[in-house]
């Protein structure tokens, strides 16, 4: 994993996203912390999980991280007070989470900290920037892909995707799932500034909208997926160029559209970012091969993958084979979290 640092060099905010629990996300973070020791101060925070997931954070998935003295971190007050570093309070943020206000602190000694931040994009961005202005050289945001988190790695300049044997017992499935995730997360950004502006206007108001050739647009209120697919199909007129969809874009929605029309050809479906795409490989392929396009408003810049060949359920894959296969499938650098410390 030594080379991972040189990959990160150009970026000031980096997210580490796990595809599952136990894929070694924390190991990656610990590795980076260790390798940057004495070089520059890091900033750390994490994308919080809302509501019912709180227990998940407190009880099972405690991202306890051993940090170096000088590290700046943003975490909920309850977790902040639990850390065993000698802690300095730098700032209170006024941002509240179920575990208290987010506090920006500084470790005055080495030791363990527990990180749980806000769950909203704009707030994570705000906190990352505050940590940078308080002296952090690079900010790492710990996150996960889930329908429940609203925040997405698109708020950071670069993203590390963590995957591994925990995904599936089948070697091929792990490769396939990982490759699909990479494909969906790195979905191409819409480049046309006019379109982006209009899309943001639509998203500010409703969950669905249509952009026309003459750059006029229409907002539509929808309540259910079924509703959405019906309205989309009805509105796929010749003069529509973009369909803007807020929130998750699912297989079900795509299936309904594929079933009812072929007018999606040469039209672009715009979603907020790649984490909103919950699509199967086959549906996605049918759609794109028959001329449909999906683009995002905020791109995610995946710079590398990390893999954990060991599963917490006891099985393990051949690490070399996994590395080789994945590298060739995704066309990105892949690192083994357990190897080359």
């Amino acid at each position: 994993m030594n080379n991972i640092l040189s990959l990160l060099e150009p970026y000031r905010t980096i997210s580490i996203i796990g595809m599952e629990k136990n894929v070694g996300k924390t190991t990656v973070l610990n590795h980076i912390i260790k390798k940057t020791r004495g070089k520059f101060p890091l900033g750390l925070t994490s994308i919080g999980r809302d509501g019912e997931d709180v227990d998940l954070v407190t009880n099972t998935e405690k991202p306890r991280i051993y940090v170096e003295s000088g590290t700046i971190y943003a975490t909920a007050k309850e977790l902040f007070l639990k850390g065993d570093v000698t802690k300095e309070v730098l700032k209170t943020t006024g941002i509240n989470t179920p575990m208290g206000e987010v506090i920006i602190g500084k470790a005055l000694s080495d030791g363990y900290v527990e990180i749980g931040g806000p769950s909203v994009n704009a707030l994570i961005k705000q906190i990352s920037n505050e940590m940078l202005s308080l002296g952090a050289e690079k900010v790492f945001v710990d996150g996960a892909i889930s329908r429940k988190t609203m925040a997405s790695p698109s708020i950071t300049e670069a993203t590390i995707l963590s995957t591994g044997a925990a995904l599936s017992k089948s070697f091929d499935k792990v490769i396939e799932k990982s490759a699909l995730t990479v494909k969906l997360l790195s979905t191409e950004k819409e480049r046309d500034e006019n379109i982006l502006q209009i899309a943001n206007k639509i998203l500010a108001k409703t969950r669905l909208g249509f952009i026309y050739k003459d750059l006029n647009f229409k907002n539509v209120e929808v309540t259910t997926v079924l509703d959405a697919s019906k309205i989309i199909v009805e509105n796929l007129k010749d003069y529509v160029t973009h369909i803007v969809v807020k929130g998750v874009f699912t297989d079900k929605l795509l299936e309904e559209i594929l079933k009812s029309t072929n007018k999606y050809k040469d039209k672009t479906f715009l979603v907020e970012d790649g984490t909103k795409l919950f699509l199967s490989s086959e549906k996605f392929d049918i759609f794109t091969k028959s001329g449909g396009k999906i683009k995002v408003i905020e791109p995610i810049n995946i710079i590398c993958l990390t893999i954990n060949p060991k599963s917490p359920f006891g099985y393990e894959f051949d690490k070399e084979k996994l590395l080789y296969k994945l590298k060739n499938t995704v066309n990105l650098p892949v690192f083994d979290v357990l190897g080359d410390e």
């Binding site: 020791r37 003295s69 000698t86 802690k87 300095e88 309070v89 730098l90 700032k91 500084k106 005055l108 000694s109 080495d110 030791g111």
Partner: peptide, 27 residues
């Protein structure tokens, strides 16, 4: 900013010194 400063107590200062030493060893 605020933390529990070493200046508050000699004992605290001493404890933290020990802590730092061991953290160096761990590293």
């Amino acid at each position: 900013t605020f933390h529990i400063y070493d200046a508050y107590s000699e004992r605290l200062k001493e404890i933290r010194k020990q802590k730092k030493d061991i953290e160096k060893k761990i590293f």
